[in-house]
Design a protein around this nucleic acid. Structure first.
Length: 260
DNA sequence: TTAGAGACCTGAAGGC
DNA sequence: TGCCTTCAGGTCTCTA
């Protein structure tokens, strides 16, 4: 959202084109009509949802799914450019090969009560997140901590990469049950989660396959991974071979020695 | 009520 | 070189 803000904030959406409406959920039939000619009054983010507010009292809720990206001023029409936003300053294309992403438009006043937004837990970089919240999340839950942290209702916007890396940094094995975490484990996790996110943001995110910033620049945080995608390679801290297990259908990478 | 598996869709990578 | 299989950054729905 930081990448596209300079092109659209304060600008009129002179053209909105929906080329493919069959994303994860169908793009609303009145999407183009409600946006074209509207002025973008601001942008924002909640969990993994990007937000675009307009002077017509609407807000676009945008999700990139797993393979989606926003392309700034694309020089040519690429395959999978499903929705185009054009202002006097440039063009933004929502490109998403797998179409796991989505676009919604809702009255801004109803944004907080929209099911997608209302279900979000506290932001891990916000004031409501901390050891007290994590203690409440894990108390009484027999789910593995990995599963708990990936659940956006408990903590907003944590993805598989960053949960794996945060668990490593905190020295907590992904299979540990919520009820089995100690006070010290929770304190370390409460510190590790925002720390990993801040490092990743500073590095421009993680480019593995599809991800790129709107400018087309790649992220570099993947070079700092300690465990994610490093199965069979030595731990950078202790040399033990990094392991991989599947939890809830997602790969979890961990160091059997550093994470207990 | 909760946890986990399956599904959605496409492309890249690796094996044969 | 080409075909087939596996896997992937997310999240909803269904089932046990």
């Amino acid at each position: 959202m930081r990448g596209i803000a300079p092109l659209i904030e304060g600008e009129v959406l002179s053209r909105v084109e929906v080329r493919r409406p069959d994303l994860r959920w169908p793009v609303p039939a009145d999407f183009r009509q409600r946006l074209q000619g509207a002025c973008v009054t601001g942008t924002g983010r909640r969990a993994k949802y990007g937000l675009i507010h307009t002077d017509r009292g609407d807000t676009v809720i945008l999700h990139l799914g797993m393979s989606g990206r926003l392309r700034l001023d694309p020089q040519d029409a690429a395959a999978h450019d499903h929705v185009i936003f054009e202002t006097a300053r440039g063009t933004v294309a929502l490109n998403d090969p797998r179409r796991f992403g989505s676009l919604h438009i809702v009255p801004t006043e109803a944004l907080d009560s929209h099911p997608l937004i209302a279900a979000c837990g506290p932001e891990p970089l916000g004031p409501a997140f901390g050891a007290d919240h994590l203690r409440a999340v894990t108390r009484g839950s027999t789910s593995p901590i990995k599963t708990l942290l990936l659940d956006g209702r408990r903590v907003a916007g944590l993805g598989n990469i960053y949960v794996c890396e945060a668990l490593f940094e905190a020295g907590v094995r992904p299979t540990r049950r919520g009820t089995r975490l100690t006070r010290a484990d929770i304190e370390r996790l409460a510190t590790a989660i925002p720390h990993v996110l801040q490092r990743a943001i500073a590095a421009g995110g993680s480019t593995l396959r599809d991800y790129a910033q709107p400018s087309g620049d790649l992220g570099y945080f993947q070079h700092d991974f300690h465990v994610y995608g490093r199965e069979g390679r030595p731990c950078r801290r202790c040399g033990t071979v990094i392991g991989r297990i599947v939890q809830s259908g997602r790969s979890s990478f961990y160091c059997p020695s550093c994470q207990r």
